[in-house]
């Protein structure tokens, strides 16, 4: 067996194990950590395909940022497992149907002749080929408008999310750093001329 085949199977096994762990673990924190494992193995597979930019950005974005926030939220949830499992059999038929449909779609798309041809006519990249540079060129020249549109959609999503959760509460206490920095001595200290009290007694 070639070394890269071995690495492929190692990562693929880890990826599947991680995926199964996500749905089987009872503790949501464990599930999130399994998902991190799955992402990481997926990134390893991409690295094997010499798609280093995609592989590293998968780790950077999903493992380094998205999953941290996920974990952050999941850790603070107080989840009652019994309540979650209550309606399992009621929802099972619908869930099973959706799962079957998805499996069917996947099988259909993998079976198409186009999909199978993809692998056979790939030429290996020449020496010194930087796929980061190529991706950048494609994104910012050929596909610049779709790319910018996608980012605008994301921006709208951010604004919407903030607008939905932003509540102005009355009477909250907060500090204004600009004001704090601008403070002068005269605003806080008042010098008073007065006679010394109780002269001669205290000593």
């Amino acid at each position: 067996m070639e070394f890269s085949t071995f690495v492929f199977y190692a990562f693929a096994t880890l990826l599947l194990a991680g995926g199964i762990g996500v749905i089987l673990s009872r503790n949501p924190v464990h599930a999130a950590l399994f998902l991190v494992l799955a992402f990481f193995s997926g990134s390893g597979l991409w690295m094997l395909l010499e798609a280093e930019f995609l592989a590293i950005s998968l780790v950077l974005v999903y493992v380094g940022a998205v999953m941290v926030l996920f974990l952050f939220v999941v850790m603070m949830l107080d989840i009652n497992l019994d309540q979650l499992r209550e309606g399992f059999w009621k929802y099972f038929p619908l869930g099973g149907l959706v799962a079957l449909l998805m499996v069917g779609e996947l099988v259909l798309s993998v079976m198409t002749p186009r999909f199978n041809h993809l692998g056979s006519n790939l030429v290996p990249a020449p020496e010194g080929y930087s796929n980061t540079r190529e991706l950048g060129m494609q994104l910012y020249t050929t596909y610049v408008y779709p790319f910018e549109l996608a980012s605008v959609v994301l921006l709208v999503a951010i604004v919407a999310a903030i607008a939905l959760t932003l509540r102005r509460r009355k009477g909250t206490k907060y500090q204004n750093p600009a004001e704090q920095v601008r403070v002068r001595r005269e605003d806080r200290v008042r010098m008073v001329d007065m006679k010394t009290e109780g002269q001669g007694e205290a000593s």
Binding site: E52, I56, S57, L60, V63, F72, M75
Partner: peptide, 23 residues
């Protein structure tokens, strides 16, 4: 070639140690 990206990706994983330790 993607050295800088690699460093950003790897260092961003350090937070898991802290979060998992705390939890």
């Amino acid at each position: 070639d993607a050295g800088l990206l690699y460093i950003m990706a790897i260092t961003s994983m350090g937070v898991y140690g802290v979060v998992v330790a705390g939890w």
